[in-house]
Nucleic acid binder design. Sequence first.
DNA 1: TTGTAGGCGTTATCAG
DNA 2: CTGATAACGCCTACAA
Lengths: 351, 351
Amino acid sequence: MAKKSAQNRNALSGTKVSIFDVAREAGVALSTVSNALSGKDNVRESTRLRVQAAADRLGYRVSVVARSLRMQRTFTLGVLLADVANPSSPDFLRGIEDIADQEQCSLLVCNTDGQLDKQLAQMRVLLDRQVDGLVMLSQHCQQEEVRELLAGDTPYVLLQRRSTEHEDTYVGANNEEGIDAAVRHLVAFGHQRIGLIRGPADSSTADERYQAYLHALQRYQLAPAPDYVVQGDYHVRGGYQAAKRFFAMSPRPSAILAANDMSAIGVMNAAHEAGLKIPDDFSLIGLDDIEMASFSPINLTTIALQRREMGAAATTMLMKMIRQKSKPSPKKKIFPMKLIVRGSTGPVKTP
Amino acid sequence: MAKKSAQNRNALSGTKVSIFDVAREAGVALSTVSNALSGKDNVRESTRLRVQAAADRLGYRVSVVARSLRMQRTFTLGVLLADVANPSSPDFLRGIEDIADQEQCSLLVCNTDGQLDKQLAQMRVLLDRQVDGLVMLSQHCQQEEVRELLAGDTPYVLLQRRSTEHEDTYVGANNEEGIDAAVRHLVAFGHQRIGLIRGPADSSTADERYQAYLHALQRYQLAPAPDYVVQGDYHVRGGYQAAKRFFAMSPRPSAILAANDMSAIGVMNAAHEAGLKIPDDFSLIGLDDIEMASFSPINLTTIALQRREMGAAATTMLMKMIRQKSKPSPKKKIFPMKLIVRGSTGPVKTP
DNA sequence: TTGTAGGCGTTATCAG
DNA sequence: CTGATAACGCCTACAA
């Protein structure tokens, strides 16, 4: 039967060369070609060479699609992220790619713009495509609909956002440590009034950072002022607006801790507009250490995240889950954060 | 035969629900399910509803892999780019995604780091995966090996890099126009000595921009000085090094035209280090208009590229090629460029 | 309008 | 070590 169909194909002088053609060319059986080409050890070396030669001669290329159908494994990973255009995304992505490449996996990349409905739609697409695993970078992960999709047998890793209600395999960073270093740095400069620009309300990471900020204040015996915590959105705009609110306060904070570097940039924009100098008029600390932060005109003190390493670690964990079919107990990996001191922080001004 | 196998599957109480199960549940034939679910018009509305309901009840999801094998169409586009981490990449990517989403296509994204061997490897992977089409963003496209892979029947579009020797479907920008506007702007400020930081030697786009620069000089009757053209690499480092060379000249250029915004940032870094002020000591113009260019501390005059639109246009053209199986004559689309005047340009200093 | 019978290109199984 | 054959899940003539 298979033979007949293959012969037909061949008779039609198919433009595409399949494994059958190679078998004929090499004078061996179909399965031998498969075994030889996929490096199985149950084929004599001389045969393998002959097959290889025939394949090359014919310009044979395996059909990943057919293989996927047969093996029920697509060698494809789905990556969900809010927005590739966010400067911190690509580094995570490169880390993911580092491992994926090693594992012969390709990446299906989807932007969700942080919107739940888009995320759900993309997740469904990815699942329909039978990706071997899912990397969820800063994605929603509490909602029931998300959980339903995650409940299938496709392995996944959460990166930079965790669920409080579920136990997942997770890769994150030690926000407590990072924020502590930042606050300590500011305190050493004499700052007492430290404002925080929070990340979005629905982000676990933003929440952790907020908690870490509160802990740090306590640790250094600074009185927390609710006014000094302003909601941002991880984007320039949110940072800008938050800064304007800070500037209108009196006394205003002598230092601002931004949820991430983009928010800090927003603060810089606002400061420029208001004619305030950094760090003369106030100090500013970001978080992420995106490349931009190191450029001279920006020169932002910030808390660095090992994004590429985190992406790689998450993917390594994911690949492990993919290989051992049985669901193992969820693992966690928390990366250190490191304060990078640049020019946006300085001693508190004592007028 | 097919029936038998399906029954077997079912007897094994397959964990995965297939089209066969839906057929049974709805009490119709296999093909009816297929037709109903894929919105064919040869099925009664009541039947469609019944099938739909059965599918929902069973939680049926189509297998894109199986469909791909059968249809010889994967609904997947391959995107080759040098580096997602380059700030101009994501905007192109979003434009590509805009159209891909519309067309129910997913994106396989590959970084090549501008290296030919990586590009070839990625192209082979993509081709083996039978992507429906290829978007080549700033990729090598002259080399014989590349051409061999492109010679297959997979449609492709070149974006932001063209081949001088081949006719391809191509989307680019009007460098002549953009560079002219920039030079005109500088000339209006009284600049006579305009330095150029070139892009990489193997980039057609870089070359076009270089030619445009020469034309513009001529147009405004400025004498071209070979020294004033320095090789860059589209990255910060190259811009930085080029700037240092400019600074060492006497007379040094009173204005610098950078191959792209990242190069311009490199110039800013160098200027800062050398204690030179922009635009007091010299004017600077970038190209790309990446988001960063608009941030207050950077505030870079630059030539804007409609990246998202270009990505979308390229993908639209690609989809058209995919649909009409026969290879049409290559089309080209050239987008306008626009000078965005910010704070990095000013009148020439007359000491 | 609905049902039947391949076949898309592999890999896995199992018998020689 | 090699070879025949059955799935993998779906789409689509073609027949009814």
